[in-house]
Design a protein around this nucleic acid. Sequence first.
RNA 1: GGAGGCGUAGCGAAGAUGGUUAUCGCGCCGGCCUGUCAAGCCGGAGAUCGCGGGUUCGAGACCCGUCGCUUCCGCCA
Length: 593
Amino acid sequence: MENMKRTATCGSLRAADDGLTVVLNGWVHRNRDHGGVHFINLRDRYGETQIVVDEDVPAELAELAGSLKFEYCVAVEGVVRKRPDSMINPDMATGEIEISVKKIEILNTCLTLPFMIEDETDSNENARLKYRYLDLRSKGMQERIILRNKVTWAIREYLQGVDFLEIETPTLIKSTPEGARDFLVPSRLHPGKFFALPQSPQLYKQLLMVSGFDKYFQVARCYRDEDARGDRQLEFTQIDMEMSFVSREDVFTVTEGMMGHIFKSTMGIELPVSFERLAYDDAMNLYGSDKPDLRFGLAFRDFAPFVPGSDFSVFKNVLESGGVVKAMVVPGAAAAYSRKKISELEETAKTYGAKGLAWMKVTAEGLDGGVSKFFGDQADAIKSGLEASEGDLILLMAADWKTACNSLGAVRSRLGKDLELIDESQFRFVWIVDFPLFEYNEEEKAWEPAHHMFSMPQDRYLDTFDTDPGPVKGDLYDLVLNGYELASGSIRVHDPELQQRIFNVVGFPKELAEERFGFLLDSFRYGAPPHGGIAAGVDRLVMIMAGKSSIKEVIPFPKNSVGMSPMDESPAVVDEQQVRDLHLRVELPEEKE
RNA sequence: GGAGGCGUAGCGAAGAUGGUUAUCGCGCCGGCCUGUCAAGCCGGAGAUCGCGGGUUCGAGACCCGUCGCUUCCGCCA
């Protein structure tokens, strides 16, 4: 091996290197034996280079070349040769040259592959995860992992440049089961006691503010024991930030600057200097989502004004019981949307709790189909009120406000995809601001924190928030990109008295607060500075940048959708002795046959 | 916890209304081939059709159950 140490990578050689003797190390990507002449594509993470086994090489070398199978790991020595013009491959970065082979050494052989190493695999996801080390060899995965590296690098580069300190916080911490379920870690030294893995470094970063590290960040691994989704894993990575002596504007400025730097330095894309803002109420009312994809329109309108003038009792009843009737005009979709296709949209709405989806079509004469007979005499008013014109499809949703928003929002998202309204090359950021601080839980008949308990009410509610929690807006904000919640943050409470008032509103007992977060509340009594921050999902960011719809595509070793790793088969049963050491007893659920 | 989708060779798929040797592509094995770059050509091996039960003369297909994966709702920011 010593004399076959690589002197170039498979992506580095160009026409200018003509005549150079090189050693390449890599994997056999393709092997095309033409009887006389013979081509091998050698691949490493830098690219691919064509190796030529000329017709006049010694028989032994030709035979060795012929024996190379897919994914053999080899060292190749040869001479860089400029290809004749007619044989240049313009699709290959190294396509101007090839290596005339002089020597081959097999560093390792390879079994028959479970799937081919291609640019993008269409193989079954669990097979890909079981052989993840092979899946990661594909060009697509390599590019995404490299992109991810560039993104985290750019984050550090930017934040260091504006005086942030990267500080680690513990991953064995106290369980605070208010939000998601915690992953628990039993303590061997302390029988019956448990650590938890952090859902976020939230409490620790606030403590760092108390300590005076006024600009902190961390590329933090976080854990939540909840069911997975396309954009959710048990463990995930956040770029976690916190700052002292700031308002939300400062947080926005840093985040915008950081995103700008990430996109500029990794993809050469110039983002706007500052991002659009949308109030939570407006986002919900217009797009039916607190993470709207603004790459397309289809904004909702209020249909309530047209309800009293009609006999349609369904809408009337909903309005009378405090609900809303919303309209979405889909331009030019009347012809394309048959009753059947509309009922598919209705199914989408129903998964979000809607009872149905009403519709009508705009014609030259007036309104047609669906519920049009109830509104025919208001046709002109509806057309002008909704700014609808001939050939448009009008979808109508009547339900309580939240259900109406969510379900019509889901229909909107689906239409965005189905009608191909989305410009996939766009990266559309929007700040969602003015979230409600509290939410009323109808079942529990109690107020709950809409996000968490440590966020500030906006100034104008400081005197009234505990007597009238409903209308209170918090100093809370989300950064949304292309319909994904990319980051979430708030200005925190740093005053113990104010914190206690918030606990009172949400009925969180003082004793429990002391037990759970006593250390944080105590710290606030020692000159805690005003502070706030944000945490952005690295997995989601890279996923969106890479144009993928699952974060598994940008995580080197993800879990599958049932939270297991098909590769190492974790989680797994452990030795009885290990369990005993931890002072635990394991009760298995009844065996299913 | 719930809903939809899927499960056929190592991989990706086809298999109308049930009909006997289960099809195709990639990969694998053997052979041919002097310029390919998803090389090409010829030949070959490889499948208890996820599992269990049922209906039937006959089930990959139909019915019941079950397991697994997957997307979504719930959950979770």
